Amino acid sequence: MTLLDVVYYGFIAVVFIQVFFYILFFGKFAFIKPIKESHKNTGVSVIVCAKNEAENLQDFLPSIIAQNYPNFEIVLINDASTDDTLEVMEAFVAQHKNIKIVDVKNIEAFWGNKKYALTLGIKASKNEYLLFTDADCKPLSEYWIRDMCSHFNDDINIVLGYGAYSKDKKSFLNKLIRFETLVTAIQYFSFAKVGIPYMGVGRNLAYTKTAFFKANGFVNHIKVRSGDDDLFVNQTATKSNTAICFTENSFTESKPKPTFKSWLKQKRRHISTAKYYKTHHKVLLALLYCSQLLFWLFAIILLIATFKWYIVVGLFLIKFIIQYTVFAAASKNLGEQDLIILIPVLEVFLIVAQLTIFINNLISKPNYWK
């Protein structure tokens, strides 16, 4: 058997792996409609942790204050900011009775640890239902709280939402960031739908205070400075206690990073937590990424060598037809349809970026919470 034979059979294998994921995993999310649960109007605490976010709070906090929900408080956590964040928070408190401030000072044991600040904010909250977002996020609807928290019941104590990024039609980086966000969302929604939830994003995530303290909060990964969202979900989420929410009214939107360098720095922090996931999650995610990388690598080698090119082209087309079908449906669910036409280009760039981040993380530790 020649080297090209090995590559050829390897290519067939990774195509089957890819098709397996698209049909049996991603298809479970792509072809469902969002469930609109009955509205319970139970008390909700919206928690926003901010470190040097004075400008963003002024821009985005009003959209949380304006939520059309009868019973909610806003817990603003000032995590040892050195700018005017605390002053901005105090100005909002003076105008709105349902806002409280948790002013966190740095202490040596938890220096610069967002999880410590969040824990203090959670303890200060008065409601059982907790809804989290970031200081640079805004809900895209006045019914964000209503839709996200309508999924809570006696069994469901974790709700995964979608945190989008604002669009810039002229920027390729913007499309790449949004594509990565879309792919990640399709993955965590799909895995949750098939009963193996593994992560959520802090830009739009809800869980109960009871679930938080039952899991001992962030204690099990408190020394891992990132991962206040995905590691907590990975630790506590199960098939029976987790719901997904992707109604149009439930989305939040953030400002994407303006440069490749700042985006790669952000993703280094995010990806660094994956090694702490449960073993079966790591195996599935590694299998998915390796199959994507090897698909392109093997396809290029075989097509350059014109080795059984007609079969290679056929398998290539089959994979992309299935991928386009699934991603088109999933992107419609999440309002990201404009990205679909660029899937091959964006996928290649994303694979290269992720490989670069992985290598950099092996060489040096990424920076953490501001």
Score class of each variant (00 low, 15 high):
Leu3Tyr: 13
Leu3Ser: 08
Val6Lys: 13
Val6Glu: 06
Ala13Asn: 06
Phe16Asn: 06
Gln18Thr: 12
Phe20Thr: 13
Tyr22Ala: 02
Lys28Ser: 08
Lys28Met: 08
Ile32Val: 14
Ile32Leu: 13
Lys33Gly: 05
Lys36Gly: 01
His39Gln: 09
Lys40Trp: 02
Val44Glu: 06
Ser45Cys: 09
Ala50Pro: 05
Asn52Pro: 05
Glu55Lys: 15
Leu57Val: 01
Pro62Trp: 02
Pro62Met: 03
Ile74Val: 14
Leu76Gly: 04
Ile77Asn: 03
Ala80Ile: 01
Ser81Cys: 02
Ser81Pro: 00
Thr82Phe: 06
Asp83Val: 12
Asp83Met: 10
Val88Thr: 12
Glu90Met: 08
Ile99His: 10
Val102Leu: 00
Asp103Val: 06
Asn106Thr: 15
Asn106Lys: 13
Glu108Trp: 11
Lys114Arg: 11
Thr119Ala: 09
Ile122Ala: 06
Lys123Thr: 13
Ser125Arg: 01
Asp134Gln: 00
Asp136His: 07
Cys137Trp: 01
Cys137Tyr: 05
Pro139Val: 01
Asp147Tyr: 12
Asp154Gly: 11
Asp154His: 12
Asp155Leu: 05
Asp155Lys: 13
Ile158Phe: 03
Val159Glu: 05
Tyr162Gly: 00
Ala164Met: 11
Ala164Glu: 05
Ser166His: 01
Lys167Phe: 09
Lys167Glu: 09
Asp168Ser: 13
Lys170Thr: 15
Ser171Asp: 08
Phe172Thr: 12
Leu182Val: 15
Gln187His: 15
Tyr188Asn: 11
Tyr188Met: 08
Phe189Met: 11
Phe191Gly: 04
Phe191Met: 11
Val194Asp: 10
Gly195Tyr: 11
Pro197Ile: 05
Val201His: 03
Asn204Ala: 04
Thr208Arg: 03
Thr208Gln: 07
Thr210Pro: 01
Phe212Tyr: 15
Ile222Gly: 00
Gly227Arg: 07
Asp228Met: 03
Leu231Thr: 00
Thr236Ser: 14
Thr238Ile: 02
Thr238Asp: 01
Lys239Met: 10
Lys239Arg: 14
Ile244Tyr: 05
Cys245Glu: 15
Thr252Leu: 02
Thr252Ile: 02
Thr252Ala: 00
Ser254Phe: 04
Ser254Tyr: 06
Pro258Gly: 03
Phe260Val: 09
Lys265Glu: 09
Gln266Tyr: 15
Gln266Trp: 09
Gln266Arg: 14
Lys275Cys: 08
Tyr277Pro: 02
Lys278Pro: 07
Thr279Lys: 14
Val283Lys: 09
Leu284Gln: 13
Leu288Phe: 14
Cys290Gly: 09
Ser291Asn: 06
Gln292Pro: 00
Gln292Phe: 15
Ile301Val: 14
Trp309Ala: 12
Trp309Val: 02
Val312Pro: 03
Val312Leu: 07
Leu315His: 01
Ile318Met: 11
Lys319Trp: 13
Ile322Asp: 04
Ile322Trp: 09
Gln323Val: 04
Phe327Arg: 04
Ala328Pro: 04
Ala329Ser: 15
Lys332Gln: 14
Lys332Arg: 13
Asn333Lys: 08
Glu336Trp: 00
Leu346Trp: 05
Val348Arg: 06
Val348Asp: 00
Val348Gln: 07
Phe349Lys: 07
Leu350Asn: 12
Val352Tyr: 10
Thr356Gln: 03
Ile359Gly: 03
Asn360His: 01
Leu362Tyr: 00
Ile363His: 05
Ser364Ala: 14
Tyr368Pro: 01
Trp369Asn: 11
Lys370Glu: 14
